[in-house]
Simulated assay, not measured.
Amino acid sequence: MKISIIGGSGFVGTKLIERLQDESAYELLNIDKAPSTPYPQISQIGNVLDKDLLSKQLSGTDLVILLAAEHRDDVSPISAYYDVNVQGMRNTLEAMESNHITRIIFTSSVAVYGLDKDNPDESFPADPFNHYGKSKWEAEQVLQEWYKSHEDWNINIVRPTVIFGEGNRGNVFNLLNQIASGKFMMIGNGKNQKSMSYIGNIVAFLKFLIEDRTSGYQVFNYVDKPDFTTNDLVYHTGEILGKSIPTTHIPYWLGMMGGYGFDVLAFISRKKLSISSVRVKKFCAVTKYDSKKAMNSGFIPPFSMEEGLRRMLKAEFGK
């Protein structure tokens, strides 16, 4: 089976290639606008916005895994979310059709549900609050419409929550780094639950879909359980690193005021800052999601949440 991973030079794609490369049943191709340092021999420079080139690159492919996305909080211009995430989906589907490819796995996001929802499952109505979530939901709608006239296709959509793991430099790393350094400041009471996904389990689930969900149209939330609160993360980080971690609590309203202040500073300076009102809001929100469908599918996560956290902390902080 030839698998083309679009957007495979990033964190998830690199770990997925690492997971699949030793399988003799798979021939892998990574298509990305950025080069892949670990896997240059199977990578080609491409872009979901260049449909003609993409069509040529997908020749001979049996299955497409679409990871490419604009996902940061501070993408500018805003239209880039919709160009890459929505038009990129249309271009990918048309390039697939021209090559008679009928299987796709698409990584969407739990951002389609919005914030502070009551443990939504896959049937929960979409209510995204930011352009990333809105563009991911629009991309899913493109897939829904496509399937109406392509019922012989196999479409699997995965909505992962925030992903963490060794080598990731995203929001979870930044949070754990602040906790581990003792420079962490808790905004709010810390009792808000945070659904998370360990990278080793995410790529194992993608492999499960490749091998076990080969027909039909399916949507899966992906969340590793249990859901830690922010207080839990502080506790487990201190326990794993063997240190007492003091935390300073400040009220939510004061944290939001500070976030708005950084928004103004970022606008004036034209620089991307690590603190913003959106990030404060996301930090304090309850982001808890239902993953019964994925966990009842026959898939067994190879790592517990605690083990995933331990592996990341040991790799990143040398303890």
Rank of each mutant, 00 (worst) to 15 (best):
L49A: 01
L49N: 04
D50I: 09
D50F: 07
K51D: 00
D52C: 08
D52G: 09
L53H: 02
L53C: 06
S55E: 13
S55V: 10
S55K: 14
K56H: 12
Q57V: 03
L58I: 09
L58F: 07
S59W: 00
T61K: 10
L63P: 05
L63F: 11
L67K: 11
A68R: 01
E70V: 08
H71P: 00
D73P: 10
D73S: 12
P77M: 03
P77E: 06
S79V: 03
S79W: 03
A80T: 14
Y82C: 01
D83F: 06
V84P: 04
V84S: 04
N85L: 03
V86H: 13
Q87R: 15
G88V: 05
L93Y: 02
L93E: 02
L93W: 04
E94Q: 15
A95R: 07
A95G: 13
A95S: 15
M96E: 01
E97C: 03
E97Y: 01
E97R: 15
S98F: 04
S98I: 02
S98T: 14
I101L: 12
I101N: 11
I101A: 10
T102G: 01
T102F: 10
T102L: 07
R103N: 14
I104Y: 05
I104D: 05
I104L: 15
I105W: 00
F106Q: 03
T107S: 07
S109Y: 00
V110S: 06
V112C: 05
Y113V: 01
G114S: 07
G114C: 09
G114H: 01
L115D: 03
L115W: 04
K117A: 04
D118Q: 15
P120C: 06
D121Q: 04
E122L: 04
E122W: 06
E122V: 15
F124G: 04
